[in-house]
Simulated assay, not measured.
Amino acid sequence: MNAPAARPVRPRRSVLAVPGSNPRFLEKAQGLDVDAVFLDLEDACAPSAKPGARHTVVKFLNEGDWGRKTRVVRVNDWSTEWTYRDVVTVVEGAGEHVDCLLLPKVRDAGQIGALDLLLSQIERAMGLPVGGIGIEAQIEDATGLVNVDAIAAASPRVETVVFGPADFMASLNMRSLVVGEQPPGYPADAYHYVLMRILMAARSNGVQAIDGPYLQIRNAEGFREVAGRSAALGFDGKWVLHPDQVAAANEVYSPAQEDYDHAELILDAYAYHTSEAGGARGAAMLGDEMIDEASRKMALVVAGKGRAAGLRRTTSFEPPRA
């Protein structure tokens, strides 16, 4: 299926989870250096607090200063009695300040289609641009993973596919109580297949892949190790649960300065050598390295992430002297 082309690309190296029922956390979150926030009406809200949390979220979306952060609201999943009212209250009350809705525990494409339809009805009723609010799909069990390709392709609104490790581990009867850590007794990476499966579905549909939370918020090295695995595969970012995790996420999911500089040099060198002035060659040398069209594509990925992270070049390309 062709990748949808209409949705904006909003970087999400660090995605901060904020309880929708806690005004103090909602206030503090506005000043943190994260790319995105999601105001949570699901797991972070007790059942009795959910109705009031909807109105708290609307208030902070309308009155808060979120800067350039991507503003997301996690609604409850479709198996509950709360979902439709979450969507109606939030979008009718603050739709112009909502970038995406995050749908948890997605199990099939029909659940994305249902949210898409409801959003379209509310957008029309409220005079909002139809299709303007994106969808983030969270994969949290085996059925969702089996159907992840169809889920990622279910609507042009889909912007990200998110891994939810805690519920996923429980759904598999995985023998671990530490969310995000490897289960004891298994000598390899228990999450490699899951992460690659989500990544393939995301990339084949032109959307971002986001890793889920690491709950040991005081374990900085553990967070870096877990984040480093998904970043190495190509994931775009990770959820953060505490301010102490923010800087690490922004660093891990951004290129190192050396890699960013090298990527920009490859792009400049390839552009020069394929031009008439450079000899119109399809392959050329950059120092001791041969570069070609495949090199350019790889460099575009690294350079794009570096630019989005605000990195500045420390080197420049000099055409070889004749």
Rank of each mutant, 00 (worst) to 15 (best):
N2A: 14
A3E: 14
P4Q: 03
P8K: 05
V9M: 09
V18C: 08
S21F: 02
S21T: 02
L26I: 11
K28H: 09
A29M: 11
A29S: 14
G31E: 06
V34C: 01
E42M: 05
P47G: 07
A49F: 05
R54A: 12
R54E: 13
V57L: 06
V58K: 00
K59A: 12
R68F: 05
T70R: 14
V75I: 15
W78T: 09
S79V: 08
T80E: 11
T83C: 15
R85C: 02
V88H: 10
C100K: 06
L101A: 08
L101T: 07
P104Q: 08
P104M: 08
R107D: 05
R107A: 14
R107G: 13
A109S: 00
G110L: 00
Q111S: 04
I112D: 00
A114K: 15
L117Q: 11
A125I: 01
M126A: 15
M126H: 04
M126T: 07
V130I: 13
G131E: 04
I133A: 00
I135Y: 07
V146Y: 10
D149Y: 06
A152G: 01
A153H: 05
V158Y: 00
E159F: 03
E159M: 08
V161A: 00
V161R: 06
G164T: 04
P165Q: 09
P165T: 02
A166C: 06
D167Q: 01
D167I: 03
F168L: 12
S171F: 00
N173I: 02
G180S: 10
Y186F: 15
P187S: 13
H192Y: 10
V194F: 11
A201F: 06
R203D: 03
I210K: 08
N219P: 00
A220F: 06
G222V: 14
R224W: 05
E225K: 14
E225C: 07
R229T: 05
A231C: 08
A232K: 12
D236A: 15
G237A: 10
L241V: 03
H242A: 13
V246I: 15
A248I: 14
A249D: 02
N250Q: 15
S254C: 06
Q257S: 10
Y260P: 03
E264K: 12
L265G: 07
I266P: 09
A269F: 03
Y270N: 02
H273L: 06
R281K: 12
I291S: 10
S295H: 11
R296P: 01
K297F: 09
G304E: 01
T314D: 08
F317L: 06
E318D: 05
R321F: 07
A322T: 10
